[in-house]
Amino acid sequence: MTMYKLIALDMDGTLLRGDGTISERTKSAIQQARQKGVKVVLASGRPIEGLERYLTELGLTTDDDYALSYNGALIKNVGTRENICSQLISGKDLHDVYAVSQQIGVNTHAFSTELGLISPKLSHYTVHERDINGIPLTLIDFNELAEDHQIIKVMLVDEPEILSPGVEQLPVDYYDRFTVVRSAPFFLEILNKNSNKGNGVSMLADYLGIKAEEVICVGDAGNDAHMLEYAGLSVAMGNAFDDIKAIADYVTHSNEEDGVAHVIEKFILA
């Protein structure tokens, strides 16, 4: 049986229950995995600020702990705050995406290295992004930002019935220029071509001297596909999208039924 050395966990729909909490059984399983020397890494589309209270709750705050935020665009040492890796896009890219979003009639927001969460208007899902992560929002006309302004990611955010047809109208070349992932029915994320959770987990594993076959990745949505394809053991949640279940080696219980704890107990603690 393989000795796994790292487990990367998506947050929303995976580690977190629908109410945003982590079950006691899951917390206990994570602690036991860490006691066995296994690295437990949160890998989320959220900004690092949106991970902090969970990192604290799980005790993942030492100089030996790492987190992937923004779908792998930023890898941080949680203890030292050092960036292990960051892959960005530019203000010019943001201007392009914004122009397209206006043509297709979909709301948008972005994350800037300097300004944090930015948006041209206060739309419903931008407020949701602000509130779930507990971060400030700056209203700004994207076209006022310099072409070389550093952007971590830009998102199309809208009701699924508006977003889905909008996504169909994205320029075809976007899929070559960027990483384009659907992280929720109401979120489409556009990132640096090299930014995805798979590359992020791969880079971190290389940095730590861990092989792909020693890595477990667990997720539920489109933005988890790259890391499931990378992992030695890929696990889809019981509540995952069907296309994610199709690429997984194993399907665990849902996020409401301690799916993450089940994986750790079965493959790490057993």
Results as ranks from 00 to 15, higher is better:
G72N: 06
S123T: 15
S86P: 01
D158W: 07
Q150T: 11
F178L: 06
P136T: 01
L163H: 01
E159D: 15
I84M: 11
K92I: 03
G72T: 05
E168H: 10
L117K: 05
G105V: 11
D65M: 01
G91N: 02
N83R: 13
Q150P: 13
S86F: 02
D173P: 00
L60R: 06
D64K: 11
D64Y: 08
N83T: 12
G134H: 14
I104S: 01
E114C: 00
N83K: 13
Q150F: 07
A67N: 01
E189S: 07
H95S: 02
Y175N: 07
Y98K: 03
S123W: 02
E168Q: 14
P171V: 00
K153V: 04
C85W: 13
I75S: 05
K153A: 04
V181L: 09
V127S: 12
V181M: 11
V157S: 14
V97E: 03
I151D: 07
L163A: 02
F186N: 09
R81L: 08
Q103F: 04
Y174W: 13
R182D: 00
A99W: 08
I152V: 15
Y125I: 07
D93I: 00
N143M: 11
T138F: 04
N107K: 06
I104A: 02
D65R: 01
L188C: 10
L122K: 15
L156K: 07
L117C: 06
Q169T: 00
G72V: 05
H109F: 12
A99L: 13
F186E: 01
L88S: 15
H109S: 12
P171N: 00
T61L: 08
I162K: 10
P185L: 04
